[in-house]
Amino acid sequence: MSIIAKQKRKILITGAGRGLGLAISKKLSEEYILILHASKEGNIKSIGEGNYALYADFSDPVQVSDFCKKLKKEHGDSLYGVINNAGITIDKSLIFQPEHEIDRMLNVNLKAPIMICKTAMKIFTLSKCGVIINISSCVGETGNEFQSVYAATKAGLVALSKSLAQEAAALNEEHQIRVLSVSPGFIETDMTNAIPQAEKDKYLQKIPSKRFGKAEDIAEAISFLLSDKASYINSTNIQINGGIR
């Protein structure tokens, strides 16, 4: 049994200052030691006793590199889980989207998670256990107008997760490393609150559950997927979307 399995497990949550990240942090706070990420100091209102904070602007590759080095140096001996939740969207027709906005979404939504996964996999390969959950989106599968780049980054996270799970098996004959993704549907957060009501009404007609999801719905699922009860859930994408079509 891994040393990590004998002690309180340490979980990294990126984008922990609000929305899904905040809800996930609250849900996991009693069971795990948390490493809470935000883009800058002050974005996390309460770190909590025994937890840690790491700050980095993921749109800056240099800060991502420094973040990963610090993560490995300070928490590499006890890291068990990674929730790659931080993400941004800049909704605009691709033909009008400037390159700096495209780069920003690619860096925050895809490159930063890739680099964090790389760091985590180095740690997990030594401990032979660990869980990575990449937060994707339903639009990574369905696509959505004016979100071409955002949807592409979210689809990339699904492919990344499935591939890394297979790599873990190829590199370790005996291991307890799992990598998967979660694709929320329309969840009530700061990001979706900015959507015009007419657009919200259109989405609601596509949801059989006839309601929008809450951040707590995703947090509950993440809590389960991190646990040993989900030990056979691997290399897959979990859709939590109310059945949206």
Rank of each mutant, 00 (worst) to 15 (best):
S2M: 09
A5T: 11
K6H: 04
K6L: 05
R18Y: 09
L22G: 01
L22A: 01
S25N: 06
S29Y: 04
S29H: 07
E30A: 15
L34T: 09
I35A: 03
S39F: 06
K45I: 15
G50Y: 01
Y52N: 13
L54F: 11
D57A: 12
D57N: 15
F58D: 01
F58Y: 10
S59I: 05
D60S: 14
Q63E: 13
V64I: 14
F67E: 01
F67T: 02
C68Q: 01
E74S: 12
G76T: 09
D77T: 12
G81N: 02
G81F: 00
G87P: 03
K92P: 00
K92C: 11
I95S: 12
I102R: 05
I102M: 11
I102A: 08
L106T: 11
V108D: 01
L110M: 11
M115V: 02
K118H: 15
T125D: 13
I132P: 00
V139R: 00
E141R: 12
T142D: 06
N144H: 13
F146I: 06
Q147V: 07
S148Y: 01
G156V: 04
L160M: 14
L160T: 02
S161E: 11
S163C: 11
L164E: 05
A165T: 10
A165Y: 10
A165L: 09
Q166I: 10
A170T: 10
S181F: 03
S183L: 05
I187P: 01
I187E: 02
I187R: 01
T192K: 04
T192Q: 08
D201Q: 12
K202C: 00
Y203A: 14
Q205I: 00
F212K: 05
K214M: 09
E216K: 07
I218N: 02
A219S: 14
L225E: 00
K229M: 11
S231V: 07
Y232R: 02
I233N: 09
Q239R: 12
N241K: 04
